[in-house]
Amino acid sequence: MSAYNFAYLDEQTKRMIRRAILKGLAVPGYQVPFASREMPMPYGWGTGGVQVSAATLTPDDTFKVIDQGADDTTNAVSIRKFFEKTAGVATTEETEMATVIQTRHRIPEAKLREDQILVYQVPIPEPLRFLEPRETETRKMHSLEEYGLMHVKLYEDISQHGAISTAYAYPVKVSGRYVMDPSPIPKFDNPKLEMEAIQLFGAGREQRIYAVPPHTRVVSLDFEDYPFEATKANHPCDLCGAEDSYLDEVIMDDAGNRMFVCSDTDYCRSRRKAGHQGRMATEGAA
């Protein structure tokens, strides 16, 4: 593809994004404004993640894209093809083999390594947005470290429902300073936010980039008497038998029978390859 620059974006745009990434790493959890470009895919479909990946990839990288944990969901396929075409990078479905992983809504089950980078697609980067719709106000609240409103909201949940009713995009405090939206990952994934890999977050439509360096303290907001709980469906995976992975619920038939399978397709595949079997695994599986 000679009509476009390496990794699609022009160099000046990449420099602008790269500067934002560096500032984001220097102030973990703070949302750095950046002049997001119109990409050839719609806003809300991963343009932030795509721009961050484009500014991060080198031709030596092996790139993996997941959506809902899966490599073969249509939008993941579409983004992977985009970078195969514009950056000529190798791609993989194996978490182990990837150097850069772009994700929507999940953190892979396998522990990520020091030499890997996880790029999140973020729809609404502002954790306070649904409490206060105004950017001018939320920016002030971050600057004053005024997060009382968030605690009040969580506490209202408890008094009303007996539990915090946020199941995904569960807010975290990063390095003891900024409250951050971890993107709409299930709260099951929150404890994994403290990891070896560099985590970069891109919100294209909202024009924000933020980052969590490796080994950074990331605490899910909670209360002493209502501690944070990373929950998942109380089942093992019906295909690979994993007890520790986040599960998708699949409706099997008209009678509404269900099965539960790993949302991380690569994790499930590699476990089955290693001989693990779930309740519904048969000889024809995998």
Binding site: N5, F6, A7, E11, K14, R15, R18, A55, T56, L57, T58, P59, D60
Partner: peptide, 9 residues
Amino acid sequence: PVDAAHAFR
């Protein structure tokens, strides 16, 4: 594009 990508990393 490639030199800058490596340098940035």
